[in-house]
Every structure is written in structure tokens, then in C-alpha cells.
């Protein structure tokens, strides 16, 4: 018997490396120009799962909620060592805040069923809230350990983990099943060439039918046959809608979100009255003099 580990990942715009091209003339960010990446700390969560797989024998299922294009991060996870992938996608999920997101994910977890450990990255770089992990744990009535840096031990009834706290660390022991959120404390393994060769053909059903439509053939029987082949080879990325995971539509997306965005303002670095100072002894000397005189210094 092996452990069943679910890892929750998110495809996010790369908000941390905003280059010149992604800035508009007015100093605001052109979101469309930002590349979509694997949320960094979700890679740490995946790495921890894969380390546990190496140490204890586990099956790693990676789950994401997002638009159909989010299948990209699932393939990435397969390249690195995940065994199975699930895409939760539905138009009704749009506009979800963290509560609605965690609800939808909890329905997905219930459909997957058998699990021992749930891992999430601590937070995603587009919202930086760190809320979905703890909220998902609560929805499933599971104990949670946030800010995990390492798993010290795993046995069939409990996990022992080291986690960060303000000003130090703790070692916690918790019964399974449990949810952990993972910090940037390991080095995610790269994609394996051999796995890329295999899993680059992994597809969601809608990717497959889109490929058929593009090739102008729409034989439903053939499509079903190809899906069956993909599944048999372990190359089918499961794709589930709100209905398929039994999610109450009142509780997902914008409808299921208690928080509403009233307004959004772009941050523009405002020029203060700036004085350039010569990097010479006299320039710096008079700057220091000025600061002493107005009691900023001394």
C-alpha cells in the first residue's frame, strides 16, 4: 500500500519579474503581456510530494483549478514526476475569491476520494493571500500545518513536519489525513527528459477534441477511442466541471464569493520632489549638513 498525496497548483501571471515590455506608458502593468508560470511555491509543494514519493512510496496526483490553458502546469508537473493530473475547469468558477475557490477544490477532493496528504504552496504570487490552503483544510474538516519546510517522518497514521513560525520553527506531529502548505524551502527538481518524451502527449479531453476540430475531423467514435488509448497509457489529464465534482453553483465563482472588489487602482511610482546630489565631497557634505540642520540626522 502506498500513500496518496494530492498537490494543488496554480498557473499565475509572473508578477515578480515585470520587465519593461509589461509596463504600459502610464506606468501601470499590462497584464496581458505577463507570461503565465507555475506558481513558485506550488513547485516547492510538488517537490516535497515527490521527495515523499521517493522516500515512502506514494502516488502523487496534481490538481489545478483554472482555464483550459492551465493544463500546461499539469503537464509540467507530470514532466517532473507526478503520476496523475486533474484539471478543474468551468466558466462558473470565474471571479472566485478564496472561499469559493476552496469550496470548489474541496468538491474535487471528495470526487478523487482516497487521500492521505494534501499539499499546497504557501501562497500564489498573483494574490499573495495564503488563504486557500487553510480554507480547503477547513472545508474538508482536516487538520492543517502551514509554512512547512520539511517532512521529518511519515507513517500511516501521522506526519511529523518542521514548519516556520515567527522568529523560529516548530516540529509538529499531526494525524493523517492532513493538509500542509509548503514554503520556499527546497529546490524543485527539473523536468526529466525521459518524462517529457512520454508526457508531452498527455492531453485533456477538450485539448484532444480541439486538435481533432483543427484537423477537420469530427468522428466521435474515433475521438472516444483515442481517449481510451490515452487513458490506458496514463496520458489522459482528467478534466472535470463544476457539475462533475458535484459543486453547488451557488457556492462557486463570483456568486459564491463574499468579497467583492470595489475598485482597483494601478500603482504608479510617483515622483517626489527629487534633488540630485553630486557624488563629490562637497555635494555629499552639504547634503549631510542640510539633514543635520533640519534634525533628520544627529
Amino acid at each position: 500500500m502506498s500513500y496518496s498525496i494530492l498537490v494543488f497548483v496554480k498557473q499565475v501571471p509572473d508578477t515578480q519579474n515585470i520587465s519593461g515590455e509589461a509596463m504600459k506608458a502610464d506606468g501601470t502593468v499590462n497584464r496581458a503581456a505577463l507570461p503565465a508560470i507555475f506558481n513558485p511555491e506550488d513547485l516547492n509543494a510538488l517537490e516535497l510530494a515527490l521527495e515523499l514519493k521517493d522516500r515512502f512510496d506514494a502516488k502523487v496526483t496534481v490538481v489545478t483549478m483554472g482555464p483550459p490553458t492551465a493544463a500546461e502546469v499539469l503537464r509540467d508537473a507530470l514532466y517532473r514526476g507526478a503520476d496523475k493530473a486533474v484539471l478543474l475547469t468551468d466558466r462558473s468558477f470565474a471571479g472566485a475569491d478564496t472561499l469559493a475557490t476552496s469550496f470548489a477544490l474541496s468538491c474535487c477532493v471528495n470526487k478523487i476520494g482516497n487521500y492521505d496528504l494534501l499539499l499546497c504552496g504557501r501562497q500564489a504570487i498573483d494574490g499573495d493571500t495564503a488563504q486557500v490552503g487553510p480554507q480547503l483544510a477547513e472545508k474538508l474538516k482536516l487538520p492543517q500545518i502551514a509554512y512547512v519546510e520539511d517532512v521529518i517522518d511519515l507513517s500511516f497514521d501521522k506526519v511529523t513536519a518542521k514548519r516556520a513560525i515567527d522568529g523560529g520553527y516548530e516540529v509538529l506531529e499531526c494525524k493523517l489525513p492532513a493538509l500542509m502548505t509548503v514554503m520556499d524551502a527546497n529546490t524543485p527538481r527539473p523536468q526529466a527528459a525521459r518524462r517529457i518524451m512520454k508526457f508531452k502527449r498527455a492531453k485533456t479531453p477538450s485539448e484532444l477534441s480541439k486538435a481533432h476540430a483543427n484537423a477537420d475531423y469530427t468522428d466521435a467514435e474515433l475521438l472516444a477511442e483515442e481517449l481510451a488509448v490515452l487513458e490506458e497509457k496514463g496520458l489522459l489529464i482528467n478534466e472535470w466541471t463544476a457539475n462533475e465534482v458535484g459543486a453547488d453553483l451557488e457556492r462557486v465563482g463570483l456568486k459564491g464569493s463574499p468579497t467583492k472588489v470595489k475598485k482597483i487602482e494601478s500603482v504608479v511610482l510617483t515622483a517626489s520632489e527629487s534633488k540630485m546630489v553630486e557624488a563629490t565631497e562637497s555635494g555629499i557634505g552639504s547634503l549631510i549638513q542640510e539633514l543635520i540642520e533640519d534634525h533628520t540626522l544627529g
Binding site: 517626489s272 527629487s274 549638513q289
Partner: peptide
């Protein structure tokens, strides 16, 4: 763009000058 005073220069040159100027005046 957010600074009140800007100094364009090498830290290894500017910082010692600041230290020297402060010690001389304070």
C-alpha cells in the same frame, strides 16, 4: 522616482564620503 535626494555613483565611493562628512559635522 521616490527619493527626495538622489546620488548617482558607486557605493564604495559615496558611503565613505558620507561617513566622513557626518563625522566632521556632527
Amino acid at each position: 522616482s521616490v527619493a527626495h535626494y538622489g546620488i548617482v555613483g558607486d557605493l564604495k565611493d559615496v558611503i565613505p564620503k558620507m561617513i566622513k562628512a557626518f563625522k566632521a559635522k556632527a
